Amino acid sequence: MDRPTQPFDQLRRPLGVLRLSLTARCNLACPYCLPDGAEPPGLLSLEERRALVAAAVALGAGSLRLTGGEPLLNPGLEALVAAVQPLRARGLREIALTSNGVLLTSERARALRAAGLDRLTLSLDGVTGTAVARMAGLSGGDADTRRRRGEAQLEQVLAAIEHARSAGFAAERGQIKLNAVIQRGANDDQLLPLAGLARQRGLELRLIEFMDVGNRNGWRPEAVLSAAEMVGRINRRWPLDPVGRDPHGTAIRWRFRDGGGHLGVVASISAPFCGDCNRLRITADGIAYTCLFGSQGTDLRPWLRPSPDAEALERTLARLWRQRHDRYSEERTALALGDQRPAPAEMAYLGG
């Protein structure tokens, strides 16, 4: 049987990005994510993960994003990055990693670069020990103890940025970026300090609205600081000019007028971008989800075990994608008014 051509979903969206989770665990307990404490059963092997990436690339995915939980907890990370390098000849253009940065040592950064990683996005939700501790879910001890632990974590992330730079990741070419989830009443006082830090370090800062992913994070609309308000606050301090959003991109980008680099905002709540979303997510145990807010996935392990069946995998993913009609962020208002929403999967399980 012939292999499928590049599929389009029910809204004529192509498959372009595979977000592959390597673990559901994390070394932090950020309250907007709240990861699992243990792995789900049946984690994928290196061979199985490579087969999934190959199938997605065959169907048009040019970008691979390695996620978690915290992907640096996976000891096979570098081996996977190296194993998918031959897929560049078939259309894989970029391999990126999203990490909280705490475990990114100088040695690990060099190993990832040598294996063929193109880009790193590190997470930091504050610039003070108190804010970092709060947003990382650091608990135990008194406030001063938590502050000191937050300061230590902040130093680890700042060091990770420099480790990445020394390993050859070029921030000026967008190869190191900084993510920050901003939650009203929790860390919105960190907005300008984070922007100042990113400008000082020559990094593009991506500000992310607090999202209603999963069931654990206590999301409520009034805790969302909208992208427009974030941009407005920063623009009053450092004037911004609009750049726009790339096709299929998640971030609306702005340029600092004084030459201080770029800023991005991910407005999944206030300005949804479902219309050209091209991302497929596969969990660490091989379940495919066609939306970050999805409640049901498709188990791909029958086509991976006892050994991967490349053609069957491609046909299964193509069929899944052609059936896709997800646009939860655009439908959120109607659902809030009373429509029933099935219980969604958790962010750390889906790979963020």
Rank of each mutant, 00 (worst) to 15 (best):
Asn217Lys: 13
Arg108Gln: 15
Asp339Trp: 06
Thr121Asn: 15
Gly259Pro: 13
Leu120Arg: 06
Leu22Val: 02
Arg236Thr: 02
Tyr289Gln: 00
Arg148Asp: 05
Glu330Asn: 09
Tyr328Trp: 11
Ala167Arg: 09
Glu314Ile: 13
Asp241Met: 11
Ala114Thr: 11
Val132Thr: 09
Glu172Thr: 13
Leu197Phe: 15
Leu15Phe: 09
Gly116Trp: 01
Arg315Asn: 02
Ala89Met: 08
Arg113Tyr: 10
Gly338Phe: 06
Gly214Phe: 08
Pro35Met: 09
Pro308Ser: 02
Leu44Ser: 10
Pro75Thr: 03
Gly351Pro: 09
Asn100Lys: 11
Ala55Asp: 11
Ser166Pro: 00
Thr5Ile: 05
Trp254Leu: 06
Arg301His: 06
Val57Ile: 01
Leu117Ala: 07
Glu39Cys: 03
Asn74Ile: 00
Leu317Glu: 00
Ala164Cys: 08
Glu78Trp: 07
Ser307His: 14
Phe273Asn: 06
Gly42Ile: 09
Leu350Ile: 02
Ala38Val: 13
Phe169His: 07
Val127Leu: 15
Gly16Lys: 14
Ala312Val: 00
Arg110His: 14
Pro221Arg: 13
Ser226Thr: 14
Asn179Trp: 08
Trp303Gln: 11
Pro40Val: 03
Ser45Gly: 13
Leu72Cys: 12
Asp309Thr: 06
His325Lys: 02
Gly16Tyr: 01
Arg184Tyr: 10
Leu203Ala: 00
Ala55Trp: 12
Arg236Ser: 06
Thr250Gly: 01
Leu46Asp: 08
Thr145Gly: 08
Thr333Lys: 14
Lys177Glu: 12
Phe293Thr: 01
Ala61His: 02
Gln183Tyr: 00
Asp144Arg: 14
Ala288Gly: 02
Ser268Thr: 10
Arg173Gln: 13
Asp189Val: 07
Met347Gly: 07
Gly214Ala: 09
Arg201Ala: 07
Asn179Pro: 04
Gly232Trp: 08
Val265Glu: 08
Val102Tyr: 15
Arg165Glu: 11
Pro14Gln: 03
Arg12Glu: 08
Gly214Ile: 08
Leu52Met: 05
Arg25Gly: 12
Ser270Lys: 03
Tyr328Leu: 01
Leu22Ser: 01
Ala56Arg: 09
Val157Ile: 15
Leu337Ser: 14
Val157Pro: 09
Asp36Ile: 03
Leu87Thr: 10
Ala114Asn: 05
Leu52Asn: 03
Asn217His: 13
Arg50Lys: 11
Asp189Pro: 11
Pro40Arg: 04
Leu205Arg: 13
Ala111Phe: 05
Pro14Tyr: 03
Asp339Asn: 07
Leu205Trp: 13
Ser63Tyr: 14
Tyr349Phe: 15
Leu124Phe: 11
Ile182Gln: 13
Gln340Phe: 12
Leu263Ala: 06
Thr105Leu: 12
Leu112Trp: 11
Ala96Lys: 05
Met347Pro: 10
Glu222Val: 00
Glu70Arg: 10
Gly294Asp: 13
Pro302Cys: 01
Gly297Val: 02
Gly37Ser: 13
Ala195Ile: 05
Arg305Ser: 12
Ala24Lys: 12
Asp36Gln: 14
Ala61Pro: 10
Ala310Ser: 15
Gly140Trp: 14
Leu97Glu: 03
Gly232Phe: 10
Val53Met: 05
Asn179Met: 09
Gly297Lys: 10
Arg149Gly: 05
Thr5Leu: 12
Ala79Asn: 14
Thr283Lys: 14
Asp142Asn: 15
Arg65Lys: 12
Leu280Gly: 05
Leu304Gln: 06
Pro272Trp: 01
Arg305Pro: 12
Arg237Thr: 10
Ala159Phe: 06
Thr5Met: 08
Phe8Asp: 00
Leu197Ser: 04
Glu330Ala: 11
Glu209Met: 06
Cys33Asn: 11
